[in-house]
Design a protein around this nucleic acid. Structure first.
Length: 817
DNA sequence: GATTAGGCTTCG
């Protein structure tokens, strides 16, 4: 059965690996035939097939097979014992309910099947066992699962030949499937009238679209299509489709389109039946025009569509045409636009430009002339994609569409030249609200500009129309009547020579003087580049940019303070008080007898605090040498103190090293406790690089006993406080993530040590950030920043940090010094 | 086998 000729892999990769595949097939019980050979033809003759509907835990599985088309393929899961698991769902094409079942495959078969099988393949499984489906109560798929593991497990895979492009008529379908015995019988899909839907069923339905939203991004992982359909039963049903891929969503262009959906689940929501897609979901749509071609719109390569379907579509078309259920289609040309109306515009995209992160400008036309002057939105040539020149008297053919918020993501992907339908576009009169348009108000007062507001209400959105759609054909006919003299479209290139209608964008740095929040202090001769240019530039060390601050992290600015080890370059957060207090508490119990020979011990009273115990006495050690010099209080070692007590005693001594007793000797507290307290400042050691031991510091000839001398004496690698802020920059062309690190202190005019010790210094950082990025303020309110960026490689990618840049007095609070 | 949204205009 496993002949060379049955393994006809058609892809290049397949050809290259044919030998390996064939060799693998000899040991792995997964058999693949591509290009029309049926799975059944490979199966040994002694095996008999049973329908999926008859599979139960009582089934005698020996010498039995189950066959079905792959509706779903899960990920290959690695199991703890080095094995693999793969779950697929197969559907029997001509079966009665329940006709689908989950097949769970283990081991090497799972691994190989995962490589070999694709959606829509037909598989035959043998050597399985039957178990209860743990998810049947939820998915209603089948009460049982099939399990394949061990030597007996075997899967035969066959792949239908690639679908013919474009129309797949019933005739073509049956001929291409003729070799596959199981598919030669016409698959029967039954469609439930919308009035007969009952909750919690998986069904197939037909309907006329009466409302729809183009797929929009959800908060979850998918895009969501929302639609409402109706049929001759006059029942209206809401449908929600979740798919991660845009192409899997129904291709709905307008109200009145006909939709067919397979495998949608009925649910009760707000006392009405609603539909949601479920495993194996597919949708096909048709234009709703009576008498028009019945051309299925789908990205699925393999659909069932026959004369019966054609009849259903035509019946729905005629029925809908006789109803008044469809709202008047608000699709009007530019020539019919009135200010303030919402409408759908079918147009061609000529060029586009990103205005800021929440707004993209689309320049479009539909070949008709708007009766109102069309507002010219200012854009500099460098940021526009696709440009054109146009005779002055024809300028009223080009409409400026400002696309906001959630629609920007899709607008970014649009290519000039493509045909679009923009849904729920609004014509807005006047231009006074547009940023940067400082022109003659009276001249602009009569102007019209188009807004696609944020959100998806009323189906607001954009759809790319296929070239063969009737609306696009019509559009091409109109726009094609213009000669090059009238309208010279130059796509996908930038031509700054054709500048007469372009001017400066509101957020473009160059000609508009705006207050700048920072200045560079470097002597590089670099010219400023846009963020897009920076990203395109090859490896370079230094860039100068002009940008605004879009956002930053951490928002809680005290978290910008880090502890950095010079030796191992490790960086850590400043430990929080709870963690530190816990180490102190644990050390309080370790106060056994110990007496370093170089120190005198004594007792000290802890001053009363707001909450702590009053009048407690703790042991203190002082260096002989320091005492001899009259500097005994400059450095003390405190045994068995809490964090709170240490803080209270910090005003009595210059330096405090908290200690514990360990095996008759003094020892430092473990990280994350600071090893040293000096006034309000705490000093920490690197856990990795320190070899701490409690010793007497050598202070001969030393003027002041500071943290460095103490750290050195104790074998502690001192952690330095540093500031680290991540900023997201933005200009008209792009955004860029940069760090403030090396030069953060000069940028903020503050030292990290001060930030660690006092509130005033922390407030200064807050003030600077608030001036660069005012809370609640719009981008327009934010100052432009002149920045010097240096590029460096980290973790295999290029990172950027702000260097040689300081905030200007306008942005920074005045320096009291 | 989770979650998403659950129509219902607008900051610009």
């Amino acid at each position: 059965m496993r002949s060379e000729s049955s393994c006809q892999f058609e892809t290049e990769r397949g050809k290259a690996s044919r030998l390996t595949e064939t060799a693998a097939a000899a040991v792995m019980p997964v058999h693949v035939a591509v290009g029309g050979a049926s799975a059944g033809s490979q199966v040994p003759a002694h095996l008999t097939r049973i329908p999926i509907s008859l599979v139960s835990t009582d089934t005698d599985c020996s010498d039995k097979t189950v066959q079905g088309k792959v509706l779903h393929k899960g990920p290959l899961v690695s199991l703890e014992d080095d094995g693999f698991l793969l779950k697929i769902i197969i559907q029997e094409e001509e079966g009665s309910q329940p006709d689908s079942i989950s097949v769970v495959v283990f081991g090497g078969v799972a691994q190989r099947l995962s490589e070999a099988v694709r959606l829509e393949d037909v598989v035959v499984a043998s050597g399985f066992t039957v178990g209860k489906s743990p998810t049947f109560h939820k998915d209603k798929l089948h009460p049982c699962n099939l399990y394949l593991s061990g030597d007996a497990a075997c899967v035969y895979v066959s792949r239908p030949p690639p679908a013919e492009p474009k129309t797949q008529t019933a005739n073509k379908r049956s001929s291409s499937h003729a070799e596959v015995p199981t598919a030669a019988k016409v698959p029967k899909y039954s469609y439930v009238p919308l009035s007969e839907l009952k909750p919690e069923n998986v069904v197939n339905v037909y309907g006329v679209v009466v409302f729809f939203k183009q797929p929009f991004r959800t908060r979850g992982t998918d895009l969501c299509s929302s639609l409402k359909i109706t049929d001759q039963s006059n029942k209206k049903v809401c449908c929600t489709i979740f798919c991660s891929k845009l192409e899997d969503h129904p291709k709905i262009f307008q109200v009145g389109d006909i939709i067919r959906m397979h495998r949608v689940k009925t649910r009760l929501y707000n006392d009405s039946i609603a539909l949601v897609n479920t495993f194996g979901f597919s949708a096909v749509t048709f234009d709703g025009t009576v008498g028009g071609d019945v051309e299925p719109r789908t990205s699925s390569r393999n659909i069932h569509f026959d004369e019966e379907d054609r009849r259903v579509v035509e019946e729905l078309r005629s029925w809908a045409a006789a109803q008044t259920l469809l709202p008047p289609v608000p699709r009007i040309p530019l020539s019919a636009v009135q200010p303030k109306v919402y409408f759908d515009l079918t147009c061609q995209l000529l060029s586009k430009a990103s205005i800021d992160s929440t707004c993209t400008l689309l320049r479009v036309w539909d070949g008709t002339r708007c009766p109102h002057p069309l507002l010219k939105v200012a854009v500099e040539p460098g940021i526009s994609e696709g440009t054109y020149s146009i005779a002055k008297e024809r300028q009223n053919l080009v409409a400026n569409v400002l696309v906001y918020d959630n629609h920007v993501e899709l607008a970014r992907q649009l290519k000039p030249g493509s045909y679009l339908r923009i849904y729920n576009l609004r014509a807005l009169p006047g231009a006074s609200k547009l940023p940067g348009n400082t022109g003659n108000q009276s001249e602009e007062a009569d102007c019209v500009v188009f807004h696609l507001h944020g959100g998806t209400a009323f189906g607001r959105g954009i759809r790319i129309l296929p070239e063969n759609s009737p609306n696009v054909q019509e559009l091409k006919r109109i726009t094609g009547s213009f000669t090059d003299d009238d309208f010279d479209v130059v796509l996908e290139q930038d031509d700054s020579a054709q500048l007469e209608i372009w001017c400066t964008p509101p957020e473009s740095p160059d000609p508009v003087p705006v207050d700048c929040g920072t200045e560079r202090s470097c002597s590089h001769g670099e010219a400023a580049v846009t963020l897009a240019e920076l990203k395109r530039a090859g490896p370079r060390r230094v860039f100068h940019v002009r940008a605004q601050l879009r956002s930053y992290e951490p928002r809680r600015l005290h978290q910008a303070l880090k502890l950095h080890c010079h030796k191992c370059q490790a960086m850590q957060d400043v430990p929080d008080d709870d963690a530190v207090a816990a180490v102190f508490s644990a050390a309080c119990g370790e106060t056994g007898p110990c007496g370093p020979t170089w120190a005198l011990s004594g007792q000290v009273d802890v001053p009363a605090g707001p909450s702590g115990p009053c009048g407690r006495t703790v042991t203190v050690y002082m260096s002989d040498q320091l005492m001899a010099e009259g500097k005994g209080k400059d450095l003390v070692y405190l045994l068995g103190v809490t964090l709170e007590e240490t803080c209270r005693l910090a005003s009595a001594f210059q330096s405090i090293v908290p200690v514990r007793s360990s095996g008759g000797r003094l020892a430092l507290l473990d990280p994350p406790a600071p090893f040293l307290f000096r006034g309000t400042r705490r000093h920490y050691g690197c856990g990795r690089c320190s070899e701490a031991q409690v010793k007497e510091p050598c202070v001969e000839g030393v003027e002041a006993v500071d943290e460095r001398i103490i750290a050195e004496a104790l074998g502690v690698q001192l952690l330095q406080p540093r500031l680290l802020v991540k900023l997201e920059l933005q200009d008209a062309t792009d955004t860029l993530e940069v760090f403030l690190w090396r030069d953060a202190e000069s940028f903020f005019h503050v030292s990290a040590e001060d930030v660690a010790a006092n509130q005033e210094a922390q407030d200064r950082i807050r003030l600077v950030m608030d001036s660069l990025c005012p809370p609640g303020g719009s981008m327009a309110a934010r100052p432009w920043l002149d920045l010097c960026l240096t590029a460096y490689a980290a973790e295999g990618r290029t990172c950027y940090q702000i260097c040689n840049t300081v905030t200007r007095p306008a942005a920074a609070p005045s320096d009291p010094a």
